[in-house]
Nucleic acid binder design. Structure first.
Lengths: 319, 319
DNA sequence: CTAACTATGACAATACCTGTCACTATCATA
DNA sequence: TATGATAGTGACAGGTATTGTCATAGTTAG
């Protein structure tokens, strides 16, 4: 095997195993240790951040940087990667924000002139709009770390105007419409609740808290277990039925909570039907009103009454 | 310069200039043509897709694939790139959909085991939710291509129940809340309008259409020139003033059209103020009603009347 | 103290790289 | 049709770079 090829192979090998000894590689490549030493030095000069420690249990290590072996990307793929990163630029808070940007810049800089031109041409021609919120989300990384690591956090959560301390074990985080949410097991409620991340006033690990539960099987992909839009509520349920016009169906498709309730007819109209918590009546009343003549509440009577009451109140303001 | 280094350099060089001759490179690297020929063959064996043509104006070319030179990515950066691509997975329609996925897979495959583990751990713990719409967006790539290339398209557009043929020159495309929009110069209206891409029933280049205008300076970054939410409307303007509660401000922040109109007070409340088209009164009435007690229309009188009329109508349905 | 590591230098053998030259093949274009 | 620009191949000699071996030294965990 030629030296050039060996160097490229070596590059990949040292990245695969982050820690290794010279002898190990020498055996693997069927060359002498001396050669491997020389090769490693050369790799270092080429930019691979190697670090070595002498002594027993010593050896070589690749530092936090990793060299990607040369990958054949099509031009389209390179552009796609660039725009995937570009798509997230409206997020003011993002776990990986920094890294995403620096990776994007590296990519851009390594690309040849004509691909750059294409990207420049395109980057003002395609966009993914997300509402820019004033809310602050300082704990996203921490929440994500706690979710992957199955750890318990003590948070100070502001709910309905009052702040409360709670122990939670995050399931994950998700962004929706410019806001970040965190489904988590709440030790206070003894169930999974969805928290709005901008209402988390503080968060941190707390040794004195309850022991972590095994929630590895619960993740964002199986959130049937989550409760409704607010994460609040009690156990008293009631059946709801709301008729929807064409536009009402479209509006509901944009709502996360609606998918289990939404039924669509062939002509584009549809209806919402299902059990809801009584404490959510106010929410649904407002939602139905927001759809104007595209939604008509049929059940339950309490919801009809709430809608009528709200409408009357609104009308009164304009008298 | 050692051969190994030259090969790496060569890799980058042939990617920079997609087309080149052997002599060119020989001069650039100060080696003989014979050596370059040998090097190029070796590069070919290493995976660089080279193609050559003999004769005058012949030369070497790199085929559509490009090799990225080895880039040092930190682990965090690699993860960030992965999740940028991951973030777009809820988009059923996406220009670059295929490429984004294949690039993501390549990335994933080249990463070492422990980074993969980290990604696997995380990918069900972070998400970017976008409403999944039933609407179809088959012309995104075409629209984008027309926007970057300053070309005129003939589209069949469904607006208010009726279909019309129009010549448009796209400015760009953007996704918002699960739907794709396309601001474009409309030759029918003689102005820039926003089209909903799922209502474009057909699109294609048309030689018989009007000549393209020079709209290179108009792009998504300077869309002040765009008209309101619907892209429809006439020239008669009227001043609007809507008082907003705390929640009303938050709701407005999520709307694209509101930013030039929205004013926020220190206490979190605010108001909408500005000139609007009379034809949009119905839209704003519905919007204000959707905010329930979080919005109170002050001006213009027509809007107040429209709100009252709509509210009365809604209330009537529940009598 | 020892074993397991890295680290460096010197040197000889040799494998590989390089340039040169000679030749062939293809193709655009004058 | 002739010509020049281009790729492509093979052979060969000279030279350089690569490699393995050996010697030696430094560091550190156990």
């Amino acid at each position: 095997m030629s030296k050039s090829k060996r160097l490229l192979d070596l590059m990949m090998t040292v990245n695969r195993k982050r820690k290794f000894t010279v002898k190990e590689l020498a055996d693997e490549f069927n060359v002498s240790s001396r050669t491997i030493l020389r090769d490693l030095q050369e790799l270092g000069e080429l930019g691979v951040p190697l670090y070595s420690e002498v002594g027993p249990h010593g050896g070589y290590q690749v530092l936090n940087e990793r060299i990607l072996p040369p990958i054949a990307f099509t031009e389209e793929e390179a552009v796609a990667i660039f725009f995937a990163s570009h798509a997230l630029r409206h997020y003011k808070y993002l776990p990986f924000k920094q890294e995403s940007l620096s990776a994007q810049h590296k990519f851009y800089n390594y690309m040849s002139g004509d691909v750059r031109d294409r990207i420049d041409e395109m980057k003002n021609r395609i966009d993914f709009l997300t509402p820019v919120r004033q809310a602050e989300f300082p704990y996203l990384s921490l929440l994500l770390e706690a979710a992957t690591g199955q750890k318990v956090l003590l948070i100070h959560y502001e709910s309905k105007g009052q702040g409360k301390e709670r122990w939670i074990q995050p399931v994950g985080i998700y962004a929706h419409n410019g806001l970040w949410y965190c489904p988590a097991y709440c030790f206070l409620r003894g169930d999974i609740r969805v928290f709005r991340c901008d209402r988390i006033r503080s968060a941190g690990y707390d040794e004195s808290g309850p022991a972590a539960r095994d929630l590895r099987h619960v993740h964002l992909g199986n959130k049937e277990g989550y409760s409704s839009h607010t994460g609040q509520g009690d156990e008293s349920l009631v059946r709801m039925w709301v008729e929807l016009g064409h536009g009402g169906v479209q509006a509901c498709e944009a709502e996360l909570w609606s998918s289990p309730l939404l039924h669509i007819r062939a002509d584009g109209t549809g209806w919402l039907e299902g059990e809801i918590q009584k404490s959510d009546l106010g929410f649904f009343a407002r939602f139905a009103i927001g759809l104007c003549d595209e939604a008509t509440v049929q059940e339950p009577p309490e919801l009809v009454a709430e809608v009528k009451r709200t409408l009357t109140g609104m009308l009164a303001r304009y008298k």
